[in-house]
Design a protein around this nucleic acid. Sequence first.
DNA 1: AACTACTTTATAATTATTCTAAAGTATGTG
DNA 2: CACATACTTTAGAATAATTATAAAGTAGTT
Lengths: 140, 140
Amino acid sequence: MQKMNNKNKIFIDKLRSSGLRPTNQRVEISKFLFNRKKTFHFTVEELKNSMNLKRSKKISTATFYNTVHALKSAGYLKEFSLENNTSYYDTNISSHHHFFDNGKVIDINSDKITFRKLPEAPKGKKIKNVEVVIRLENNN
Amino acid sequence: MQKMNNKNKIFIDKLRSSGLRPTNQRVEISKFLFNRKKTFHFTVEELKNSMNLKRSKKISTATFYNTVHALKSAGYLKEFSLENNTSYYDTNISSHHHFFDNGKVIDINSDKITFRKLPEAPKGKKIKNVEVVIRLENNN
DNA sequence: AACTACTTTATAATTATTCTAAAGTATGTG
DNA sequence: CACATACTTTAGAATAATTATAAAGTAGTT
Ligand SMILES: [Mn+2]
Ligand SMILES: [Mn+2]
Ligand SMILES: [Zn+2]
Ligand SMILES: [Zn+2]
C-alpha cells in the first residue's frame, strides 16, 4: 500500500534491490539515510534515536538492524569501526579515506590521497582496497 | 614476593610504569604479551583462552581486562578495531600500517608506505598520525 | 603479628547486537 | 471481496564483549 510517488522512487528501489519490500518503516529509514547531500556516518543506535525522537509511533530496534544489514549486504552502506565496540555505517560506499577527530568522522575523497610507495600483497593474495585514517588532534 | 630475576625485569618494569604492582598473574601476562619477537595482535578473550589453557589455576577475566587496559593507558599496547564489535590490541605501539586478510592482521612497517599527496588538517586541528589499512583477498 | 592498601576473583550489570515467536500487514486467487 | 499465504514488525529473550561490585586474598609496613 506504498504510495509510489516519484519523490520516493529512488529510496524504494534501494530497498527492493536489497530484497526488502518497501514498507513504510523501511522507506522512512531509506529516506533518512540517503536523502541528504553529504555522507552520513552513523551507528544503528544513533539512527534509531534520531528517527524515533520525532515519531509518535516508534520503529523497533529490530527493524533498524534488519534494514541496515540488508542495505549493507546489498552494497548501499559500508561498515567500519572506531576504537570502541560499536559498528558504524557509511552512506559513502566508494573506497575512500577518513579523518577521525575524537569520534567525529569526516570523509576524504579518494583522489585527495596518493601514494609514492606501497607494499606488494603477500603471495597468493591481492589488494582489495587501501584506506587511510588520519587521526586529528587540536592545535597546541 | 615476586622473584626479581633479571629475566623478568623488563616485563615487571612495564607493569610498574603502568601503575601496577608486579603480581604473579600480571607478570605472566606481561611476559606472554611482550616476550616475543614478532608483533602480537589479540583480543582479550583470545589472550585469556590461550594463557588459561595451559594453567591449572586460571587467571580471571577481570584481571586480563584490567591488566590490558593499564598497559594500554601507559602506552605499551595500542588498541584497534576490525569490522566486528571486539577490541583488538597490538604490541607494536609505533604508528604503523596493516594488512587485513579475513580477520588476520599483519604489520606493515611505517617506511613501507609513503605518500605523494596528503590533505591538510582542518582549521584548528593538526595531524596526530596517518595509518593505512590494506585489505587483501585471494587471487582469482 | 597487626594494619593497611592493593589485588584477585566470582558474579552481577551493562551495552551492542541477534534471535524468537507472536501479532500485524500485504499480496494473490477465486 | 474472502481467504490463504508469505512477508513484516515488534517486544522481549538470548548472547557476547565489557565493565562494575564487593568479598576474600596478598603484600608491604610497622
Ligand atoms: Mn556484540
Ligand atoms: Mn561493549
Ligand atoms: Zn566515509
Ligand atoms: Zn600492528
